[in-house]
């Protein structure tokens, strides 16, 4: 049986964490959580999730800073990063792309859309690693 994919969800809002965790776990993913940027980086390094689902506005390093640091790390840069944020102006999306994110889902979001985005990215990542 294939190991379930692990997603690290980073958001400072507990309600969002609970809601998204529920969606992802229903889908069979294993979910780790973090509530600030520094904690997220620590967990990425320790737990090596398969995908990083990231809010932009976070305490102690924002989402952009986390994403950039991940993408600049030789070991971690292949980790797919998806931003999940209410801050979704074109400039925010532009910058998300600039820092290397692979996807952007705006809040409020359609759970189906989010899951699709995640599936596609995980599949691509698998192909790349193969």
């Amino acid at each position: 049986m294939a190991r379930p994919k692990t997603i690290l969800l980073v958001d400072h809002d507990n309600a969002i964490i609970k809601f998204v965790t529920l969606i992802l776990e229903n889908e069979g993913y294993r979910v780790l959580t973090a509530s600030d940027g520094e904690d997220a980086l620590d967990k990425v390094r320790q737990a090596r999730p398969d995908l990083l689902l990231l809010e932009i506005i976070l305490p102690r390093k924002n989402g952009y800073q986390v994403c950039r640091e991940v993408k600049e790390d030789k070991v971690l840069r292949t980790l797919p990063v998806v931003f999940l944020s209410a801050k979704s102006q074109p400039s925010d999306r532009f910058w998300a792309k600039r820092v290397g994110a692979e996807g952007f889902v705006a809040k409020p979001f359609d759970p189906g859309g989010l899951l699709r985005e995640i599936r596609v990215l995980l599949r691509n990542a698998q192909l790349v690693s193969a």
Binding site: I56, I57, L58, N62, G63, Y64, Q65, R68, S91, V99
Partner: peptide, 18 residues
């Protein structure tokens, strides 16, 4: 500059600030 803009863009800025 990139690092600086990461920080600025990652902050909730008001319309006036933007």
């Amino acid at each position: 500059l990139e690092a600086f803009l990461d920080g600025v863009m990652g902050t909730e800025l008001s319309l006036r600030a933007r």
